[in-house]
Each structure stands twice: as C-alpha cells, then as structure tokens.
Simulated scan of single mutants.
Amino acid sequence: MITRDVAAFLARARACARDFGPATARAAFLVSPDGFGRAAESASDNRYMAAGDSAFDAARATQEHRRLQQDLAQDVPVFCFAGLPGAPDGLFPNNVFATVPGRLVVGRMRHAVRRREAERQDIRRCFTELMGYDECDLSAQPHPCELTGALVIDRARGLGFCGLSERCDEAGARLMHEAFGLRATLLFDLAPGEYHANVVLAVLAGHAALLCPRGFADPDVVAAIAALYAPHALLLSSEEQAGLAGNAIALAPGRAWMSARAEATLSAVTRAGLEAAGFRVGSVPLDAIEAAGGSLRCCVAEVF
C-alpha cells in the first residue's frame, strides 16, 4: 500500500507486526566533508543552511566528523569514504545511498551539484562487488527521490513516511516504496519551507517517534503517526525543531543520537519521554556541519 489516505494507512500499519526486519542497522557509513562549503543550489530550498561562505569552517567540520565516527562506533561498526571533489555537501550520503538486506539503493537528487555523488563507483562497488549486494539505481530517472532524507522508514514493521517537496515527488516516492519493498507508505506534504521529512520526523528503532508538528502541512498526519507510536510519540516544540532535534537516529536499541545543539534544546518533557521509551540520548557537537543545513541523521547512511 502507498497512499495519502491517513485512516487507511493507519489501519494497515497497526496490522503490521514488527517482523519485517531488524529495527536498527548492522553498520553505518559516512562520507568525509572534504571540500566542505556552501552549495548554492542546495541553499535554494534548505532554510536550515547558513547564509554566506564565511559560516562554513571546513577544518572544524572535519574534526566534528571524526568525532562523529568515533562516537557512533560505540553502537555499530562505522566506516567512512573520502569526500568527492566538487560535492560541498556530500557529507550527507543518506540522501543518495541506502540499503535493505542484500540491496543497495541509489537515489535521484534534485540538484545537479548532488547528482554527481550518485555516480561514485567506489561506494557502489563496495556494496556490489565486496559485499555482494544487488543494485537498484534510481539516479537516472527524472523523478527526485532523496531516499532516507525524504523517506523515514520503520524498519521493524516495513512502514514508510514520505514527505513530499521539491526533493521528492509522488512518482519518486513510489519508486522508493518499491525499491525498499515496504508494506505500506504514507505520502504527505511537508509544510512550506521544509525540504526533508527526516528533519521533522524520526522513528527510533521502530519503537518511538519524534515529530515536529509545524513541519507537516496536515495536522491529521501528525495525529496518525503519533497514534501509531503512542505512548512513545513525542511532539517537539518549535525551539526543538529549529535545533534539529527531529534529525535523530537510533543505531542500536536504547540510544537516540542527535547533535549537541539538538540535545541542548530538549525540554524536560521530551527527555522524560525518551527515557520512558527506553532511550538515552547520545550527542555529538556538530555546529560547523550544521551550517550546511543538515545534522547528525543526515550524515549517516545505514547498512542493513
């Protein structure tokens, strides 16, 4: 099922057992911020990106990125590819590459500056030749589908939550639904000015959800997702959203990773809700990286 019908999706989702696959990844990979800088094309529809080249500190971004790899490795093996020349925001690989068990999915980026990332043969060959994955290449077709930026996935139940914007249209959403083999995907419009669903929604190990209500065009969508993950659906404030607390990920049961800036915005209610859901917060300073308009979850490509 792939639908905009909130009630139909909720009925189907509630019938899905947590037997679709592992709730969290077995490994993760990053891409180094070599050549880190402001990508003008990406800035055109990313309101979280800092204005002006002076806000971009490549040396500090590299230091933060090394710390990120070290810290995430507490939960899963984490490996890192070198950055690609001419790809200033290529450190966000989850928009371009994603996996299901035995399959690498390559997405189609909206902006030309990011499409060159999908051409990387080193990443493709690592999965296909070294690890024996099949490849599902969506990069050459015309519909934008920016993978786990646009599509938040509950891996345990095989559910997708796809936020439509200029970076993912309905045809692209259908292609991703099929590529990931999902049981059901809910299509919804993001609020004006939002570019990716994973900035306003996180599903943590198939067990809890962080939602930024102002990031959704339709409050009924927020209510449905909250009902599905109740009592562990946490609605984030505008301050928490601005701090990118919705851009979180669980790489292992029991820990939710986010940036240090995001953690600093968490209210006592959100912290208590995460604790009640069985999650402690892990955070990494990413101020320099966040100038590029993404945060911790955007840096992480999961390996299933």
Rank of each mutant, 00 (worst) to 15 (best):
A179S: 10
F180Q: 00
L182C: 02
L182M: 06
L182K: 00
R183S: 03
A184F: 07
A184I: 11
A184V: 11
T185L: 08
L186S: 01
L187Y: 07
F188D: 09
L190G: 01
L190R: 02
A191I: 11
A191N: 09
G193D: 09
Y195G: 01
Y195K: 02
H196G: 02
H196F: 14
A197H: 10
A197V: 10
N198C: 09
N198G: 05
V199E: 05
V200G: 01
L201I: 10
V203D: 00
V203R: 00
L204K: 03
L204E: 00
A205M: 08
G206Y: 09
G206E: 08
H207N: 11
H207M: 05
A208P: 03
A209P: 01
A209M: 10
L210C: 08
L210T: 06
L210R: 02
C212E: 14
C212Q: 10
P213F: 15
R214F: 09
R214G: 13
G215V: 15
P219T: 12
V221E: 13
V222M: 11
V222A: 03
A223W: 15
A224Q: 13
I225K: 03
A226I: 09
A227T: 15
L228P: 00
L228R: 00
Y229I: 06
A230G: 13
P231M: 15
A233F: 13
L235N: 04
L235Y: 04
L235C: 07
L236R: 01
L236M: 14
S238T: 15
S238K: 14
Q241W: 14
A242N: 15
G243Y: 12
G243F: 12
L244A: 07
L244F: 15
A245M: 06
G246L: 08
N247Y: 09
N247R: 02
N247T: 04
I249D: 00
A250W: 10
A250Y: 08
L251M: 14
L251D: 08
A252Q: 07
A252I: 14
P253T: 09
P253S: 06
G254P: 05
R255D: 12
R255S: 10
A256E: 04
M258V: 08
S259C: 12
S259H: 03
A260M: 10
A260P: 04
R261M: 15
A262N: 02
E263S: 00
E263M: 02
E263A: 01
T265R: 01
T265M: 07
L266T: 03
L266D: 12
S267V: 08
V269M: 15
T270E: 07
T270M: 11
T270N: 08
R271E: 06
A272D: 14
A272I: 14
G273S: 06
G273L: 05
L274Q: 03
E275P: 01
A276S: 14
A277N: 01
G278S: 07
F279A: 04
F279E: 02
F279N: 00
F279W: 07
R280I: 11
G282K: 01
G282A: 09
S283K: 02
V284N: 00
D287E: 12
A288S: 12
I289T: 03
I289C: 04
E290T: 07
E290R: 01
A291N: 09
A292N: 04
A292F: 07
A292D: 06
